[in-house]
């Protein structure tokens, strides 16, 4: 939107969304690649009640604070990449809608102990046609799971890359981001 209050010299920003359940390692992954310590902000939002503590006949709504962690990577003076970490459960989908707006793509960070935490956000990305990769965080550094097993469990289509990663390891996280950008490039070249 041009008009009053607009200036032209800001660097081009690319946005990558990192989604995963609580404790899946989103902040760790963002920090591993960010040039600054992962930044943190909070958003107050009203969400539908989860059903557990609903009062009968009362439309349950509650305000919750959503933590948003993000990091920054300056590729060159004119290009900056932001990685935004967001919780993967459906009640945070208000936030996803803004985050995926104009996003290059997304990383779904999966914790094999709680794969179901990823289902909602995968549905969302598929419905919005947001390119995404699934990165399985191997906390203990042991690759005890096979990517193919996770693919089957999550029921994601073949073109979606599924890879194992260590969110603490910069090289490993870089590999995940490279995989995502290569996916976006393939989609761009195939005209999808």
């Amino acid at each position: 939107m041009d008009g009053p209050g607009v200036f032209g010299q800001a660097p081009d920003t690319l946005k990558i969304v990192v989604a995963g359940g609580f404790g899946a390692g989103k902040t760790t992954l963002v920090s591993a690649l960010s040039e600054v310590e992962a930044l943190h902000t909070e958003e107050e939002m009203t969400v539908a009640g989860t059903g557990v503590d609903d009062l009968k006949g009362v439309e349950a709504k509650t305000t919750t604070t959503v933590a948003l962690d993000f990091g920054r990577i300056t590729l060159d003076p004119t290009t900056v990449v932001y990685l935004f970490g967001t919780p993967g459960q459906r009640r945070f989908s208000h936030m996803w809608a803004e985050l995926v707006e104009g996003a290059l793509g997304a990383v779904v960070l999966a914790d094999t102990r709680r794969l179901t935490d990823c289902f909602d956000v995968i549905d969302f990305f598929e419905a919005r046609r947001v390119p995404f990769v699934v990165a399985v965080n191997c906390f203990d550094g042991q690759r005890s799971h096979r990517a193919e097993d996770v693919r089957v469990a999550l029921d994601v289509a073949d073109p979606v890359p599924v890879l194992l990663c260590d969110a603490r390891d910069r090289a490993s996280v870089k590999e995940v981001v490279v995989e995502l950008v290569e996916l976006v490039l393939r989609l761009e070249m195939s005209g999808a």
């Binding site: 200036f7 032209g8 010299q9 800001a10 081009d12 946005k15 104009g102 976006v184």
Partner: peptide, 13 residues
């Protein structure tokens, strides 16, 4: 304050 929303919010790279 001046604001500038990046092009990427609108166009795919």
């Amino acid at each position: 304050v001046l604001a500038h929303t990046p092009d990427r919010e609108r166009d795919r790279p």
